[in-house]
Amino acid sequence: MEKQNLTRTYLILLLVPLFWGGAFGTTKHILSELPPLTTSALRFIIAGLLLFIWSSWRRELSWLPIKQNFFSLMALGATGVFSYNYFFSVGLQYTSAVTAALIIVINPVFTTCIASFFMGEAWNWRTLLGVAISLLGVSLVVSKGDLSILTQMSIGVGEVYLFGSVASWVVYTLIIKKMTRTIGTSLVTAVSTIMGAVMLLIISIIKEDQWSKVMNVSSQTMLEILYLAAFATVIAFLLFNWGIQRIGATKAAAYINLMPINALWIAVFLYGEKISTYHLIGMSLTIAGVFITTQNKVQPTILEAKG
Rank of each mutant, 00 (worst) to 15 (best):
I176T: 15
K213D: 05
G184S: 07
L201C: 09
M222Y: 03
I202A: 09
S219Q: 12
G196H: 02
I205V: 11
V217C: 08
K207T: 14
R181N: 15
L223P: 02
I203M: 07
I176E: 04
A190H: 00
G184F: 04
L187G: 11
K207S: 11
K213V: 04
V191H: 06
M199L: 15
M222G: 01
R181K: 13
I206W: 11
V198E: 04
L223E: 04
K177L: 14
I176R: 12
S204H: 03
Q220T: 14
W211S: 00
N216V: 08
G196L: 04
T221Q: 04
S218G: 06
M179G: 12
V214L: 11
M179L: 15
S219R: 02
V198Q: 05
I183N: 02
S204V: 06
I205A: 08
V191G: 06
T221R: 01
S204A: 14
K207F: 09
A190R: 05
S204M: 10
A190W: 06
T180Y: 09
A190L: 12
E208S: 13
V214H: 07
I206D: 05
L201K: 07
L200E: 10
V188Q: 07
W211D: 01
I203F: 12
W211M: 04
K178S: 15
T221K: 01
I205R: 03
V214S: 10
I183V: 10
T189W: 06
V214W: 01
I194M: 02
N216C: 06
M199G: 12
M195S: 01
M215N: 10
S192P: 05
I183H: 07
G196A: 02
T189G: 09
T185Y: 08
R181G: 09
A190I: 02
N216Y: 15
G184Y: 10
I203G: 05
L201R: 03
T182I: 11
I203Y: 07
T193C: 02
T221H: 00
R181W: 13
I202E: 12
S192D: 06
S218L: 11
S186D: 12
L200P: 08
L223F: 05
M222A: 02
A197W: 00
S186F: 05
V214Q: 01
K177E: 15
I206K: 08
S204Y: 06
S192L: 07
K177D: 14
S192R: 02
S219K: 13
A197R: 01
L200C: 12
M199A: 10
V188G: 14
A197N: 04
L200Y: 03
M195G: 03
V198T: 08
